[in-house]
Simulated assay, not measured.
Amino acid sequence: MLNAIIVDDEEFARSSLYFLLQENCDNIHISGIAKSVAEARTLLLQNAVDLIFLDIAMPGENGFELIGQAQQSEAHVIFTTAYDQYALKAIKANALDYLLKPIDIDELKEAVEKASKYISLSKNKSGRAESLQNLVQNLSEKNEIRKISLHNGQGYSLISIDDIIHIEADSNYSIFYLANGEKITVSKVLKEYEEILPENQFIRIHKSSIVNLDYLKEYNSKNGLEVILKNGSKIAVSRRRASDFVEKVKLYTSFDSDNK
């Protein structure tokens, strides 16, 4: 049984989420409900909380301002939000869970199941804390995503996007090939990372491949358009993505030379 709190300034959102959890998630005990970050802080002090369902856009302090205390209490956070695209990108980049309002029952069950697994494993808490800290930095600076957190089955690996050479799809998994030779497999589809990573640096060249243009060594059309990366990987560019790829490379090389 997981002790959870709900934090949301809207009465309907609080009551509807409470009802959905009561009806669909037998392993969740709601130990408190708060309508502000200040009330949530009190609940965290008074209770041993495993899981926080946290709204983002609230008057006064927003949900992100509770992150520090969530780290201290080692509570897992699931954001519940209808928030802007930048925040969603930052949340995804840090492998944190979120539910878009109105909340879908199946997505709620899946998020709770994932949270239960993470909490029961209780591994790599420092990696989780680092992910939360990176999220705070992303949101406070409002810059491009420069680090992403990858859940590797036992914990979290926080990596610089500049260390990603390419990403390869494998069914519902994505395999990251890193500059140090390491490979990390995560249980997310390639499209999620296509949406997160900066468009000026990363490009999807095939339904199963995203490449980092920093590692592009050459490309040729001997046997259909093919890229060769600095680590020696050779990857085909699909016909329908070829013109977009060539244009992106032109823009990238022009931008790169302008900054030298």
Rank of each mutant, 00 (worst) to 15 (best):
V246Q: 12
R204T: 05
N220E: 08
I105F: 02
K89Q: 15
L178T: 08
Y83E: 11
F202G: 07
S187V: 04
K35A: 11
E195Y: 03
E141L: 10
S243W: 02
A93T: 02
P102S: 08
I161C: 05
I30Q: 09
E141H: 07
F19D: 12
L2D: 00
L20Q: 15
K142R: 15
E110M: 09
I33Y: 01
A242H: 02
S16V: 14
S160W: 13
N200D: 14
Y252K: 07
H166R: 13
D9Q: 10
D162L: 12
F245Q: 03
S31N: 12
H76M: 12
E226R: 10
Q85T: 12
V237E: 03
K92T: 11
N62I: 03
S257W: 07
L197V: 02
P59K: 01
K207V: 06
L20P: 03
G127K: 02
K125V: 08
V37Y: 06
D50N: 15
E199G: 12
N124P: 05
A242I: 01
P198D: 03
I167W: 01
E130Q: 15
Y156V: 10
L132D: 08
I210L: 10
S160L: 13
I164P: 08
D97K: 09
D8L: 06
K260N: 11
L190F: 07
I30P: 08
L44C: 04
V237G: 00
S140D: 12
A179N: 10
Y215T: 03
K117M: 07
I184Y: 04
I28Y: 09
L54Q: 07
L66N: 02
K191W: 05
A57W: 03
K123P: 01
K89M: 11
S209I: 14
L150C: 04
V136Y: 04
F19P: 00
L20G: 00
A57D: 15
Y18A: 14
S254Q: 13
I203A: 08
A48L: 11
D9S: 09
D26Q: 14
S157R: 14
I6N: 05
I78N: 01
R146P: 00
V77A: 01
N47P: 03
G127Q: 04
Y98F: 15
I205L: 07
L213A: 08
A4K: 02
S126N: 13
